[in-house]
Amino acid sequence: MSFKPLPTFDELPVDKKGPFLNAWGLYGDNDQLGFLNRLTDDVVKEAAREIQSGTRTSLNWPMDAQKDIPFFGRQVFHKHVYQKPPRVVNDDVWTFNTQSSSQWDGLRHFAYQKEAKFYNGVTLDDIHSDDSTVNGIGAWSEKGIVGRGILLDYEAWRETHSHPQKDALKSGTITLSELKAVAEWEGVEIKFGDILIVRSGYMVQYNKRSRDELEALSKILPPTFLGVEQSTEVLNWIWDNFSAVAGDQPSFECWPSTQSYMLHEVLLAGWGCPIGELFDLEALSRQCEKTGRYSFFVASEPCNVPGGVASPPNIIAIQ
């Protein structure tokens, strides 16, 4: 399939009758991949050059990490292990919300709220019609989310520069100027098609909280979290550079939004840009510090669930 030339950010929206900054139709009216179209064979082949030592680092938080008090009112993870006599054999059954631990938000997850339209103009009726798989995350499993990843280790940069720590479980912003300063401090080059991963320090702070504190925080509605600022400047930066974005926070962006719109609306519903959340970046942070390299090959295969909304990332970084 031939695609339209990539417009500049200032030329958005692509569909002039559609919502704010949309790129609907850029990759075809029935496209299911969005920004993942940027991960061409050539981009992935070049990304493989990042593998120098073969060191592998998982970015998956345990699926039961939030125990019985997950945020956003999501269901807890259940694991049932059972025997199958008379043989000495076990099977197990897992029941879980796909967004209660590390996750990719898929294109069925979040719509433009005012217009009630998902990526490429898909509606709730389209999604909930019988046997519909439109915008389902299963489409991402065929080739995966595979390419060059970069870690912007905001928390390490903050500590090195003696900046005050921001409470990761309260609403607050990591600004674009801070993210660019992190990249400069790391000496990492940003290349088109990169998978952006931001370490805010959420995991460190979460693990220090008592059960009573986490229970109280889980009852705050709407929840409050540190995240990337909502601004057209941030959106322009993402549009110009990345194929997917992710972080260790529950919402990637500052929550609740400080603007009249949310990044989720434009990224998911407007552009088809995967959003990764609750990635465990602590081991990756140590690995990147050890090597002095903040880029790596990353391979993630969402679960092949036709019509699925979200998925555990099954993600690993390789240096």
Rank of each mutant, 00 (worst) to 15 (best):
G138D: 08
G138C: 09
A139F: 13
W140Y: 13
W140V: 06
W140H: 13
S141E: 07
E142L: 04
E142F: 07
E142C: 01
K143V: 04
K143T: 14
G144E: 02
I145Y: 01
I145C: 06
G147H: 02
G147N: 05
R148P: 05
G149Y: 02
I150M: 07
I150F: 01
L152V: 09
D153V: 11
D153R: 03
Y154P: 05
E155G: 00
E155R: 09
E155K: 06
A156S: 14
A156K: 09
W157P: 04
W157Y: 15
W157F: 15
W157V: 05
R158D: 07
R158E: 06
E159L: 13
T160Y: 06
T160A: 15
H161R: 13
H161V: 09
H163L: 15
P164T: 11
Q165F: 01
D167S: 11
L169M: 13
L169W: 08
L169N: 09
L169A: 00
K170G: 02
K170I: 04
S171F: 00
S171T: 14
S171I: 00
G172M: 05
G172Q: 12
I174K: 04
T175V: 10
T175A: 08
L176V: 09
S177D: 14
S177H: 10
S177W: 01
E178K: 03
E178L: 12
V182A: 04
V182M: 01
W185Q: 09
W185C: 05
E186T: 07
G187S: 08
G187T: 02
E189Y: 05
E189H: 09
I190P: 02
I190Y: 00
K191I: 00
K191F: 02
G193C: 04
D194Q: 07
D194R: 10
D194H: 09
I195Y: 01
L196P: 08
L196G: 12
L196E: 10
I197P: 03
R199Q: 14
R199G: 11
S200D: 04
M203K: 08
M203Q: 11
V204Q: 12
V204H: 07
V204I: 08
V204T: 13
V204R: 10
Q205N: 06
N207S: 12
K208M: 12
K208T: 09
K208C: 06
K208L: 11
S210D: 10
R211A: 03
R211T: 12
E213Y: 03
L214F: 02
L214P: 05
E215Q: 12
L217S: 06
S218R: 14
S218F: 04
K219V: 05
I220L: 10
I220T: 13
L221R: 15
L221T: 14
L221S: 14
P222E: 01
P222S: 06
P223L: 01
P223D: 08
P223G: 12
L226C: 10
G227C: 07
G227E: 04
G227W: 00
V228E: 03
V228A: 05
V228F: 02
E229M: 03
E229T: 06
E229I: 09
Q230A: 13
Q230E: 15
Q230C: 08
S231V: 09
T232V: 13
T232P: 00
T232N: 08
E233D: 15
V234F: 10
V234Y: 01
V234R: 00
L235M: 14
N236H: 12
W237E: 06
W237Q: 06
W237C: 05
W239E: 03
S243F: 03
A244S: 15
